[in-house]
Structures are given as structure tokens and as C-alpha cells.
Amino acid sequence: MRTTLKIKEMNNLLNQELSEANSVLDKFVYSCSHDLKGPLASIKGLIRLAEKSTRDDITDECLHLINESVVRMDNFLKSLESFVGNARGPIVNTTIYFNESIAKVLDHYLDYARANKIKFRVRVKQDQKFVSDQLRITLILEHLIQNAVVFQDLKKTEKFVDIDVKVTPKHATIEVCDNGEGISKENINDIFQMFYRSSESSKGSGLGLYIVQEAVSKLGGEVSVASSKGVGSNFIVKIPNNL
């Protein structure tokens, strides 16, 4: 009798887990479809408008908006690649050099930062060897920095993104601080959810912070955030040193 009950309990648990997995998959597919259809519809409409227009200024504006939609789609597809890489890829421990890892990530944003007068300040204290998974460390840095850049308040006179890393024999602490748009109190508990956006006009993919949390979790670390709307955000990640 006890064996029969245990089998039933296990089946119920498996069915519940399968139902939850299917629900997540349904949401994932729907959100992907929605996020790709939007920019595609914009591109199609802008191309039709440009074809009908005889004015160069309208054509130029259409091309500018088409480029923005293409960039948005490209960023979303990169987020999907990150999501799959983190979910499926094995943990591969190697020596991490944070100065090099951060420099590679920042290289993607230097032109945008110069154009919008965003200052990057990087401080790395690594006198100690640090061993972890390079793919996931890069994903964490990339999405935290991208988040800080994308949600800058461009109306502010001074704009900055501070990246601070400290390595000890036990762990590495990564801190990414910005004075951007910030997060309201009612939204801060939801920001790590898959495809979460504070509004339909949100500029992000809705996957970045979810990927950060998942990558940190796979490395056995923890992530926390302090933020105020209109003031900025401060993300702190702690990752064990697998020496």
C-alpha cells in the first residue's frame, strides 16, 4: 500500500512539474512570437511608406526607424541565444580575468556611450586567481551592463555606469551601478521574471535579468538589487571561487 501511495505521489509531482514546464514553454513561444512580429510589422510598414514617398527626409527617417527595429530584433535574438546557452550548456571551469571580460563587453557600447555622453567607470581588484564558467560570467556582465546602458535617463546632464569587481579566495563580487531611470518599488520584485517588462514601451527584451538570475544560480551565487525610480539602480552579484 505504501509503495502504491509513493508511486501516486511521484506521478502527481511529475505531472505537476510537466504542467508547469508546458506553461512556461507556452509563454516562452508566445512571447518570442510577439516580440519578433512587432519589429517585423514596423519594418514592413516603413518600407511601404518609403516606397510611396518622394521626399528624401521621409525616406531617411524611415531608414533610421527600420534600423532601430532591426537592432531591437537582433538584441532579442542574442538574448534567446544567451538563454539557450545558459540553460543547456555544461559548467566549464576556467581562470577568469575580469578586466579582459569587462573590456570585451564594453566594446559593444562605446559608440553609443560616446554619442550619449555616458561615462563608464571600471574598478577591478583581482590579486587572487578566480575560477568559474567563462560563458556564464560573460552573460552576467553583458546583461547587467546592457541593462544599465539601455535604461539610462538621457535627459540627465551626467550619466554613468560604474562596474566594480572584488575577488577573494572565496568569491567574486560584481557590482554594477547606474544613475538611470531606476525601478519603482511596485516593480522591483518582478524584474527577474522571464519576459517581464514594466511597460509595453520598454526598450529591453524582458530576458536580460532573468538570464542573469539563472546564470548566477547555476554558478551557486546570489544576486540582489537596490533601486529607486528616477535615481538609478545598483545590482550586486556574488559568485563562489571554484579554486
Score class of each variant (00 low, 15 high):
R121P: 04
S224R: 01
C177G: 01
C32G: 06
L77K: 02
A148C: 08
F235G: 10
F151R: 09
E200A: 12
C62A: 11
G180N: 13
L77N: 00
I102W: 05
L243G: 15
R88A: 09
I7C: 06
V225L: 14
L141E: 05
G232L: 03
L110S: 15
V165N: 12
P240E: 12
F28N: 03
I239V: 13
G204V: 03
V216M: 06
D133L: 07
H171G: 00
A172R: 02
L207W: 00
D56H: 01
M1V: 07
A215H: 02
R55F: 03
N241V: 04
L18W: 05
T168S: 11
D35C: 01
V212W: 04
Q213N: 14
N147L: 10
I188M: 10
V165Y: 13
Y97K: 07
F160W: 10
N116I: 00
G180S: 06
D164P: 03
V225K: 06
K238Q: 12
L106S: 08
V149Q: 02
V149R: 02
T54K: 04
E17A: 08
R55S: 09
K203G: 05
N93G: 00
S202C: 00
D26F: 04
E214G: 01
V29G: 10
S23V: 02
V131Q: 14
V105T: 09
V24P: 01
A113N: 08
Q128K: 12
A115V: 06
V124G: 11
V150E: 14
F235H: 03
G204L: 02
I145M: 11
D178V: 03
V176Q: 05
E61Y: 05
K117M: 10
L49P: 05
N189Q: 13
A115Q: 09
K185A: 15
K104F: 05
D164I: 01
E81I: 01
S69A: 13
K44V: 11
K117R: 14
L18T: 10
I66T: 04
G180F: 07
L219H: 05
N187Y: 13
L25I: 10
L65N: 06
Y109C: 11
F192N: 10
S227H: 10
Y30N: 10
S79Y: 02
V237E: 10
N12D: 06
N234Q: 07
K104V: 04
